[in-house]
Design a protein around this nucleic acid. Structure first.
Lengths: 253, 253
DNA sequence: TGGCAGTTATCATTATTTGATATTGCCGAT
DNA sequence: ATCGGCAATATCAAATAATGATAACTGCCA
């Protein structure tokens, strides 16, 4: 037990959180023994934590299979998050407007450490499930949104990020070359947008514009996903870029 | 200290959860003392819990104001929830299809005790923030979705619910008469849908259709919000009902 | 500059968690 | 039906980790 020699650190609470975080896109319902495996906690600890979380309404349980599952409370937390983030409230109407006007998928992405997280998604066509629901985290360097946000930071920040931030190969064509990525970011700085293709999904073109605060730095990015079959990059730029830039600029402007 | 004389109950974890739940739509950033007030916990306990949650990445903190706020992790939890709920995966493409075809706001609502919770929302027009973000909970009896889901249950269930479930006056016109509500539910049973007006928002017409499982009971409802200025109830029914019923029936069908 | 409210730190006390173990219950195989 | 094995529950003495009172600090505003 690696105690964080921190007298204020409540390890029981931390253990409970570990249980919550054991659930993810490929672990949707877990038994006690699954939880023991995934968290590395003692069987008894898992038993007590899961029980407590269940009593407190944070975990549902199938009485038949005895599997634990996330409860609706997890969505309520998201609701509280939405109210707490001032960017969300300003972005949502703009995104709705864009979505309505163009009938294309629009997302709001935010930086979360060295990843981006999609905090608003307005899907407009059938696509993969992961691409339509809120809360997905992806390595910032691999995404148009991440790059365009990074492009508003200092050169040192960019160099550091390109050197150290994680990469994840998602499709066969996900760009993994850090020099190329750095180049892409500098280009984004000049252009004021970033466009990618086939990075998270084959035949998907992703176009992102920065949402700048008063300091000029991007707190978020507005991103659209366009079919790479129906359009090529130039067509996407021509058709959507001006409005996307307007939409993004209007959020904190 | 009201111990739930339950030897498996980890009270420290429960206290941590209390901190999380202290945040909501009107409490978006809380100081230590705010948290003490809202949770009723000891100052020291709050200090340790908040600190732990911060270290664990569940709370962000503004170093200037020292206020705690929900972190992006709250959205990640929502992401895990989405993958865990099989209804969501089946509903999402249908809702996208409907949204695209009709250009109107569509939601998926689920029963959560005596409330409904919106688990998917595809807003298509500017509306109130609360009506566009996922995770909002409303008393089931006051909503078309709640009533139509309830209408698929037994008579006893309905009677019990009408007698005991909570009501909440939201607009000046929110129906608070339990007899009227019971009547509305029985009508919904006959009709296979439920329509309301001015209940959660003035000049909003809400139309809901049940998503039935193999047992005939509704696990969810598909609901649309239509402007009561542009349409009256009959027009809404005529224009949208058939497709809404199809959409809802197609989800678990 | 002083005072105050809120935050951070400390520590002896003790309640709570721990983790090993025992028991129970469930499901599939025979 | 019966058995066997695995997983879930319950129990309990030991000791760790949480408690809560209090004290020290900090920064803000008058």
């Amino acid at each position: 037990m690696e105690t964080k020699k921190d007298s204020l650190y409540a390890s029981t609470l931390a253990r409970g959180l570990q249980i919550l975080r054991a659930f993810d896109e490929s672990h949707v319902a877990l038994s006690l023994t699954d939880l023991v495996e995934r968290t590395g906690l003692e069987k008894s600890a898992v038993q007590r934590m899961a029980h407590t979380l269940h009593v407190e309404g944070m975990l549902d349980r199938d009485p038949k299979s005895r599997l634990y599952r996330p409860s609706h409370a997890w969505l309520e937390l998201a609701y509280a998050y939405y109210w707490s983030d001032p960017v969300i409230a300003r972005a949502l109407p703009k995104l709705i407007e864009f979505s309505r006007a163009w009938g294309e998928t629009v997302n709001l992405a935010q930086i979360s450490d060295d990843h981006i997280i999609y905090s608003l998604r307005l899907p407009n066509q059938r696509t993969h499930f992961a691409a339509s629901v809120v809360g997905r985290r992806l390595p910032a360097l691999n995404t148009a949104s991440g790059r365009v946000m990074l492009s508003t930071r200092s050169d040192e920040d960019i160099d550091q990020a390109c050197a150290r931030w994680p990469l994840l190969q998602v499709t066969g064509k996900t760009l993994m070359d850090r020099c190329e990525i750095a180049r892409s970011i500098r280009l984004a700085r000049e252009d004021g947008y970033c466009i990618t293709r086939d990075q998270m999904l084959l035949n998907e073109i992703s176009l992102a514009a920065p949402v700048r605060g008063t300091d000029g730095q991007a707190h978020a990015a507005v991103q659209i996903s366009i079919s790479g079959i129906a359009f090529n990059e130039n067509q996407v730029l021509e058709k959507f870029l001006p409005n996307l830039l307007d939409t993004a600029a209007g959020i904190l402007g």
